[in-house]
Amino acid sequence: MKKLPLLLFAVTVLAQWAAPLLQIWKHERTLAQGSVHRLKCTAPDPYDPLRGRYLAVRPEQEESHVDKGLKLVSGQRVYVTLLDGPDGLARLSSVHLTPPESGPYVRMSVRWAGTDGLVHLEWPFDRFYLNEKLAPEADKWFAESIRSSKGVVAEIRVLNGSAVLADLAFDGKPFREILKERVK
């Protein structure tokens, strides 16, 4: 058999493994070494035909002030610093075109830049996947909790601009624990 097809096949196999493995490496590193931040959320509940049931997670804060000289266009990649408040919740602080030298920051894309000095941003995560069995109970829990003044809080890990959604919590209690108690 000719060598070229085998070589091409080997490269294909490598690429097919490398694509998911790189994602795994990047997200495992962020989960292991990233700093923890909490964001207040708002959300509905949809379904993805390929990846199953998920809760749509939408951090409450989706905009930030920008310096007057900074011209941003829709779709542009920016680096946004996170500032933890006294209530333990993180807020978007300042927008940069290059990674800031200090402090935690998240790489986000610009939805649109308003004329009022505000820029509307897109978080790098928007869903929390669930087991099909737990999903109906999770729907109920989410609908009840999201209306409460305490609200649902997303726990994220941040490292070098990469942000991974680690868990959801309500009143300081992890989402899975609450769900397991409710299902009992």
């Binding site: 091409l8 096949f9 490269v11 294909t12 690429a15 097919q16 694509a19 998911p20 994602q23 795994i24 997200h27 993805d48 390929l50 990846r51 199953g52 998920y54 997670v57 978080w123 790098p124 995560f125 928007d126 869903r127 929390f128 996947y129 991974v164 959604l165």
Partner: peptide, 28 residues
């Protein structure tokens, strides 16, 4: 494989982007 990795790490993203990478990795 790509779908499961995105599920485990709760990755967002539009399905056309997923389709794009899927198609490229299948092209050879």
């Amino acid at each position: 494989a790509i779908a499961l990795v995105s599920q485990i790490y709760h990755l967002g993203g539009d399905w056309p982007d997923f389709l794009f990478w899927w198609a490229l990795l299948s092209l050879p």
